[in-house]
Nucleic acid binder design. Structure first.
Lengths: 221, 221
DNA sequence: CCGGATCCGTAACGATACTG
DNA sequence: CAGTATCGTTACGGATCCGG
């Protein structure tokens, strides 16, 4: 089917499944919640449609990805992570940590707040699971939400399914600065670049918990 | 040079550097100690020589890989991991963990004890760094050695540079069974499939510490 | 002989058009 | 909207060739 390294090594076999172009970015997208085929295509600029279809079929075989019926009216078909897909969380976290050490991206790159927020979630300390305020984030028109439930932090694209207890609105540059700790909630509020609806203390706690401290909190050996 | 996703996302940027075919397997090989160009080529069956040269040059740019002079007589040129390469240890560990959940490899795959031992080292618990006995392992003619120094576990291919305190000799199948805990040192010794030179208690401790317990000791979130 | 560079056939990818 | 079909382009794999 797909080209294999034909090695017994676990690393090589993992890469047999995950190592081809776009594969882990599909997993990244679905780590942000279930999506429709067309949404995936739109969020992976440059990827051809036939390739996306082939990758999804491939990943289904390993239960990395699973077909599902999306919630809400319309019973639309979509894709979500399977059990072997959610098991990729530590791998995605390693990639985020390592990628954080690279030079800053060239201007003109595609950017989405959801990617930054996913990186924040993946590298957040364990206490972040107790952040139980439903928080909606709107960055430059893009909206997403998250909530900790004591077990893990749910993070999905789109508007919050219930009325959020905290709502943060900003532009991309400000959000990036907040994410990396280059600015603070107070400064961003004072300059009008960040709007906070809800408790300002909660907003401060939010960025304290999820901030992409770079260099990273070395995990592993 | 190489094709990029052109996304600001840290995952995508990490994959811009690491995501192409063979790249992480080169890192895996160099995680087993410095090597010469020809050795890398021999240990990566199927890889073309021009591609290896291109990958090495690419990885040098990011200090994942570095040119070096090999120890020993001859002052031969070789390659070793750079700082950004050794920083890939947690990523390799994640791949090992995830790959361990896949179906067993098809027969006829390439196999080396060094790959299994690297997987054991990457997923071993922290106490393994205190395993300070120089241990040489010979599996089916292939030899490698390792030693903990209290900080980390050094693991390299080839014979031990000093007289080992423990020496284990077996065939591939037996070593695999010992690595995955499907057999014990005592059983393998009793059946003559494993020869232990040195303290048998140390040999037992060795496999206790490094055994690829599958399912894994969940690390990360 | 080792460390590559060159060349060329094949397989993978990317863009667009097309179909149920 | 969710894919399949087609086709030009790029990347890879294998063999051969070259300089120290």
């Amino acid at each position: 089917m797909t080209r294999s390294y034909e090695q017994t090594c676990r690393i090589a076999r993992a890469l047999d499944v995950l190592g081809e172009r776009w594969t882990l970015l599909i997993v990244r997208e679905l780590a942000l919640g279930p999506r429709r085929y067309g949404d995936l295509l739109a969020d992976l600029p440059g990827m051809g449609t036939s390739l996306l279809a082939a990758r999804l079929r491939h990943l289904e075989r390993y239960d990395v990805v699973r077909r599902t019926v999306l919630p809400g009216p319309g019973r639309a078909a979509g894709y979500e992570l399977g059990d072997r897909g959610t098991a990729l969380t530590p791998l995605l976290a390693s990639l985020v940590e390592w990628g954080g050490g690279l030079a800053p991206p060239p201007p003109g790159s595609f950017d989405r707040a959801a990617w930054t927020m996913l990186a924040m979630r993946l590298t957040a300390p364990g206490e972040a699971v107790d952040f139980d305020t439903v928080t909606e984030i709107a960055v430059d028109g893009e909206t997403l939400w998250l909530q900790g439930d004591g077990e893990r932090v749910r993070l999905e694209t789109g508007p919050a399914p219930v009325k959020p207890g905290l709502r943060l609105t900003s532009g991309r540059a400000t959000f990036q600065a907040l994410a990396t700790g280059r600015t603070t909630v107070d400064d961003a509020m004072a300059s009008g670049e960040l709007a906070v609806q809800g408790d300002a203390d909660r907003a401060r706690l939010f960025f304290d918990l999820f901030s992409l401290t770079n260099p990273s909190p070395t995990h592993g050996r």
